[in-house]
C-alpha cells in the first residue's frame, strides 16, 4: 500500500467474507434500541445472539429481531447456557430453524464462577455439530493444544478467551495466544475478556483475525461511544499488524540527522 490505493482488507470464515473485524454481542444493554445503535456504531457485520424460550405471559414485549435486524447483521447464534454437546446441538438446531443459517458460535462453559470453557465437552460438542452440518466458530481456552484439536476436528474459527467472560481483564496469556495464532490455518478471534480499546488493539497487533466482545461495550458508561472506540481500536491494531512494527532497540536513535549541525 502506498497511501494512494487502499487494498480491501477482508477476512473470511466458513466461506463468508466480512470487512469488519469486530463482532459484537447483544447482551447486557439497557434496551434493544441501545443495542442496535451500539452495533451500528461498532461497524459490526456479525452479532452474536442467544436462543431462549419466548415469554408467553407477555407476547407483546420487544423482540431483538425488531431492533437488531437479521437483514442488516449476520446473526451468530451461541450456545450460552449449554453444558453438554447434546444441549448445544438441540439449541443450534432450533437457532437454524429460527434463522436459517448454519454459522454458529459454540461455547460450552464449565459451571463455575469463572465461566471458563469446558474444553473436553467443547470438543465433543464440536464433533456433534459438524456431523449435523454446522459451521462452527469455537469459543475456547487459550490452550494451544486444545486449539489444535478443535482445528483438526473441523472448527471454522478458533476463539480463545483473553480472560473470563465479562471480566474486562484483557489478554492474560500473550504467549499462548501467540502460539495459537501462529499454528492456526483457520481464523483466530479473541473472544471474551476485552475491557477497553487497548485490549482490542493488542489482540489485533498480535495478528488476530478479529475480536468478539460484548460487556466492554455494553457496560461502558457510554456504550455507543465505546463502540466507536472499539471500531477504531480494531482498525488501528489491524493496520499496525499489516504495517509491521519497527524493531525494538535498547538505546535511543535520533530522528533528526546528526550531520550538518551548525
Amino acid at each position: 500500500m502506498d497511501g494512494t490505493q487502499q487494498v480491501e482488507d477482508a477476512w473470511s470464515v466458513a466461506g463468508r467474507t466480512f470487512r469488519s473485524r469486530l463482532i459484537v454481542g447483544t447482551g447486557k444493554y439497557k434496551d434493544y434500541a441501545q443495542n442496535a445503535a451500539a452495533a451500528e456504531a461498532a461497524g459490526a457485520e456479525i452479532v452474536t445472539v442467544a436462543l431462549r424460550r419466548v415469554n408467553l405471559s407477555d407476547p407483546s414485549q420487544p423482540m431483538l429481531v425488531d431492533y437488531v435486524k437479521p437483514d442488516r447483521f449476520t446473526f451468530l447464534p451461541n450456545t450460552a447456557g449449554c453444558f453438554t454437546g447434546e444441549d448445544a446441538v438441540r439449541t443450534l438446531r432450533l437457532a437454524r430453524e429460527a434463522g436459517g443459517w448454519d454459522l454458529v458460535k459454540l461455547e460450552v462453559l464449565s459451571n463455575t464462577p469463572h465461566l471458563l470453557p469446558d474444553m473436553e465437552e467443547t470438543l465433543r460438542a464440536l464433533k456433534l455439530l459438524i456431523a449435523d452440518g454446522f459451521q462452527v466458530m469455537v469459543y475456547c481456552s487459550d490452550d494451544p493444544v486444545y486449539a489444535k484439536k478443535l482445528e483438526d476436528a473441523g472448527a471454522a474459527a478458533i476463539m480463545p478467551a483473553a480472560a473470563p467472560i465479562g471480566s474486562g481483564r484483557g489478554i492474560q496469556n500473550f504467549l499462548n495466544l501467540g502460539l495459537i495464532i501462529e499454528q492456526s490455518s483457520v481464523p483466530v478471534l479473541v473472544d471474551a475478556g476485552v475491557g477497553t480499546a487497548s485490549d482490542a488493539v493488542l489482540a489485533m497487533e498480535m495478528g488476530c483475525d478479529a475480536v468478539l466482545m460484548n460487556t466492554a461495550i455494553a457496560e461502558a458508561r457510554e456504550p455507543i461511544r465505546m463502540a466507536v472506540a472499539m471500531k477504531h481500536a480494531v482498525i488501528a491494531g489491524r493496520e499496525a499488524w499489516l504495517a509491521g512494527r519497527m524493531a525494538k532497540r535498547s538505546y535511543g536513535d535520533p530522528s533528526s540527522p546528526m550531520g550538518g549541525l551548525i
Partner: peptide
C-alpha cells in the same frame, strides 16, 4: 411444545 426466539447474548 417449546417455542423459542433470539434474544440478546454474547
Amino acid at each position: 411444545i417449546e417455542i423459542v426466539h433470539f434474544i440478546g447474548g454474547g
